Simulated scan of single mutants.
Amino acid sequence: MIAILNRPDFYYETPQLYENCELASINYSSHFVISGGDEQLDRIIHFLKEKQILHQRLAVSYAFHSSQIEAAKEDFLSFAQDKSYRKPVIPIISSLQGGLAQEVNDRFFWEVVSRPIRFQEAIRYLENLYECNYIDVGPSGTLANFIKQQDKEKFGQRCFSICTPFNQELKNLHTIQNLFHT
């Protein structure tokens, strides 16, 4: 997988991309991710370097959100089919659908793993319903960065990261707690 800093339309306009890989995610107006085989991605990286387009090969062991993950389908569905699923009580906004998830089951989770992610659409859908505060609990701050890129003025004061490389997690939690309990 490769993260590319460019407008998502670049994917559709560039045969070197759409002929050799699949669009895996559109995260915001100038960031998307592609998935593909190693050889194809190596050629794409060479092309992106020549064009001086910022990109980063992602340190993942599988090409998620694409047909490249198809070999895992049978094992995944076999594992997931024995689980118990119920209709969500709390609304789930899905980056897979770019909106409200109506049903959550083993197929839903397979689609999350194997189909493109529509993060930007999901945030727009959510923001049309509510004015949200976002808490990134991941180790890298990716969610917070993606949210802030939607609209820095709008989201900059409503997006919080918990984990840091500087052991500030408890301080960050207390800061958030104080913001919401005053």
Rank of each mutant, 00 (worst) to 15 (best):
Q52W: 03
P139G: 13
E70R: 01
Y125C: 09
Q97Y: 14
E39Y: 07
A80F: 11
V112T: 14
F119Q: 04
Q68Y: 10
Q40D: 15
Y125P: 11
F32A: 03
K73M: 11
A144D: 05
L96G: 10
Y134T: 02
K83G: 06
Y125A: 10
S114D: 02
G98L: 06
I53Y: 13
E39L: 09
V113D: 01
S94V: 09
V113L: 12
K83D: 02
E153P: 05
A144E: 05
S25G: 14
N128I: 03
N105R: 03
T142G: 14
I90S: 01
F108S: 01
G141K: 04
I90D: 03
D75I: 00
S29W: 00
E39R: 10
Q81M: 13
A59D: 14
V137M: 05
A59C: 11
S94H: 06
I69Q: 07
D106F: 03
D42Q: 11
T142E: 14
A72G: 03
C132T: 05
S84Q: 05
S67P: 06
G37Y: 10
K154G: 09
I69K: 07
L41G: 08
A63N: 10
S95I: 00
G36M: 00
Q150G: 07
G138V: 07
S35C: 13
F146V: 02
A122I: 00
Y28W: 12
L41T: 11
N133E: 09
Q56A: 15
G141M: 08
S140H: 13
F109P: 06
Y62H: 13
F47C: 12
K49M: 02
D42Y: 04
R107I: 15
P91A: 07
F146T: 01
S66R: 01
D75L: 07
A144P: 04
E39D: 13
R118F: 07
I69G: 02
D151A: 06
K87E: 07
S67E: 11
